[in-house]
Nucleic acid binder design. Structure first.
Lengths: 205, 205
DNA sequence: GTTGACCCGTCTACGACTTCACGGTTTGGA
DNA sequence: TCCAAACCGTGAAGTCGTAGACGGGTCAAC
């Protein structure tokens, strides 16, 4: 048992737990009551580990392994949905933190990736503002959800994301909700030119 | 009490829990033993909620509120670290799932954002392969950690990420570890030109 | 026979709550 | 004045997947 656990990078207690909840029960016991895992059991454990790498819950995994009608694709799709939601939540937390940590710093002195910095890099590579605009528009047109995700990845505040997406043509902004404030320019028409500062590795994305 | 909970979007049980663990104890009780929250308590709760939005644990929050020496910036930095690690884990799970869900589909029929699709969008906007190459190089040079994060955001497999980063000049690849396989072309020198397919909203990032 | 190195089952702990059960208090309307 | 609904209190147990501790049994080699 210890050998099996070690082989799959699990602890003894994990295997005990799997046994207890019926996800993986050894097919036999020794005379003294020791768990005996057959090669079939090991194969089952291998599947369990693969599914757990995808973040599936042990409940779902049990269904997948025991119920012939269970649909792996559907389970993965459901998990993907939850995963996206969770990433979104974490990113929101990240934005909260960054907005505090960045307070009082200019984007140039910030050790974090900002939209401004991202745009600087594009500038450096010779991508023009017009190209960036067109890119946002194409992104919004053909993959609006991913566009949103990408803007969230840059840790932009919600209001800025909303503004960029509207301005990229995803949905026409109603005249009433004109730009509520003059926030930092959207990443496609940004601030300074190529930075003079020497490249230095940044600690945090 | 119910009113306070509702005002801050919490449940009654959450406030009970906060009281129990000493994060927020009401400053008084009514004759019948009902909790009485003063405006000071409410202000404290407001801070608690803000910190929780950043994902700080209640333990840490209690220290922050009660110990004068506690350092908010440090707590947030620590949390940011954990957050990044967690996002990395979730993204790894996502890659596992996508690699399964995408199996047997061509990138064109996949409803998910792929690196190929991302590059298509850049192509559409008129960003050349040379520009993309230069962009990767600049990204790697001046913000390698963020470059890594960005490539992970695209859910590329680790091997591809490694290859792109080496090829972008971040670190010279040792001759021994030449490309182990001919995997899909890196996003900066990708496949098809602008797609003929009509834009359609994609369900998932 | 003894000494380690294994193994067993059971229990507790983690975080941030929620749910349940049972009972007291307040409040509004008839 | 009475009743019911809505509120409040306490306490216990459950969630999820594991880690670790405890006390004791088993096994191999020496």
């Amino acid at each position: 048992m210890g050998a099996l656990a070690a082989r799959y990078g699990l602890s003894r207690s994990a295997l005990l737990y799997y046994d207890r909840i019926g996800v993986l029960s050894p097919s036999g016991r020794s005379a003294a009551g020791y768990r005996r895992y057959s090669p079939t059991d090991a194969a089952r454990l291998a599947r369990i580990c693969r599914y757990r790498q995808a973040g599936l819950s042990l409940d779902v995994i049990r269904d997948l392994l025991d119920r012939p009608a269970a649909d792996l694709t559907e389970a993965l799709a459901t998990r993907l949905e939850a995963l996206n939601e969770q990433v979104r939540l974490l990113r929101r937390q990240k934005r909260h933190i960054l907005s505090y940590l960045r307070a009082g710093r200019t984007p140039e002195t910030s050790p974090f990736l900002t939209a401004e910095r991202f745009v600087e890099l594009l500038e450096l590579a010779g991508v023009s503002a017009a190209q960036r605009t067109e890119w946002h528009a194409a992104f919004e047109r053909s993959a609006s959800a991913e566009h949103q995700a990408f803007l969230e990845f840059l840790c932009l505040p919600d209001s800025t994301i909303e503004r960029i997406r509207q301005w990229a043509g995803g949905r026409a902004a109603t005249p009433e909700e004109a730009p509520p404030a003059p926030p930092p320019a959207p990443p496609a028409a940004p601030g300074p030119a190529a930075p003079r500062t020497p490249p230095r590795p940044a600690p945090e994305p």
